[in-house]
Design a protein around this nucleic acid. Structure first.
Lengths: 152, 152
DNA sequence: TCTTTACCTGAAGTTAGGTTGAGGTTGTAG
DNA sequence: CTACAACCTCAACCTAACTTCAGGTAAAGA
């Protein structure tokens, strides 16, 4: 069995549409070389890269950031343990931050159960909104800029 | 001080741009009534609704779903404890699911540190990708459809 | 009153992340 | 050697979630 994969095979194994693979290639997330007839051929390591892409996108991490993380993973050959560690740690932090955030939100919401939120001063939701306002904000800071700024 | 808020005041207190408030109104997330001169006036409860919108969007929950959740919160007057409970529980579940998912991913990634991922059969990332493929998938199932399907 | 600031509407533009379609080529099975 | 599936490129289209712009009205202060 060939070590080379066609775009269709990669699509099938990765679950990404062929069009998405083309797209990711344009964005530099994956790479291919061509046959004499100009068809794409992929090394097997593309599947690992795509698995990482899948994780990232499922977590809502923008492709650009996924691309950046993948930048630390060498193409065409298996990454060294050190390369891999670097990337893992990068993502680990990102995940940690978001888990903490989500947990806090969940717990605040939890505290709201039954409170009826009649109080402008004590409801965590109310205050969350106002504090954010004071920071001179806008929407989507967390998800799109990396999550470093929710109330502190 | 008036119980009625103008769009500018709501913008300032909520941190959302005026244009976003117009937008949310079109989408049915918030409501306003008009002055004789056709300007928007908001009840104070709009701030609570917007705080909820902020939470949702920061968590990456699509506006349509936020709108649906808000559908359970009556407009114009303070929600009953029961109304509130319903919505809280809805979101709580969503958050729980995502926290679990993220934690699992983080831990898998953690396990990858140092493994070098040479193994096609044992690397969790590799297998994650392949399993998804076998489900006949596509990208973004988790974030956009509610997260009920990451490897069961 | 005059002027400035806040508002209004509707349409078009923006970014992310892809998909769809048209028109043409390659590779493979019969 | 001829179908036919798989591939190629490029441009256009799509949804979400907003922002920006143009052209016009309302409200508040000096």
């Amino acid at each position: 069995m060939s070590r080379e994969l066609s775009v269709g095979q990669v699509s099938e194994r990765s679950g990404f549409a062929v069009s998405a693979l083309h797209f990711y290639e344009k964005k530099g997330l994956i790479r291919s070389h061509r046959t004499s007839g100009n068809q794409r051929r992929y090394d097997r390591d593309v599947l690992r890269r795509l698995a990482i892409v899948r994780m990232g996108t499922e977590l809502g991490i923008p492709l650009a950031e996924v691309a950046e993380a993948l930048g630390h993973v060498p193409v065409g050959h298996t990454p060294s343990a050190a390369d891999w560690r670097l990337m893992s740690e990068l993502w680990h932090e990102k995940l940690d931050r978001r888990i903490v955030l989500m947990t806090r939100m969940r717990d605040e919401l939890n505290g709201c159960i039954g409170c009826g939120c009649l109080s402008t001063s004590s409801c965590p939701l109310m205050n969350s909104g106002d504090h954010l306002a004071e920071e001179g904000s806008g929407p989507r800071r967390l998800m799109r800029e990396g999550g470093e700024s929710y109330r502190s």
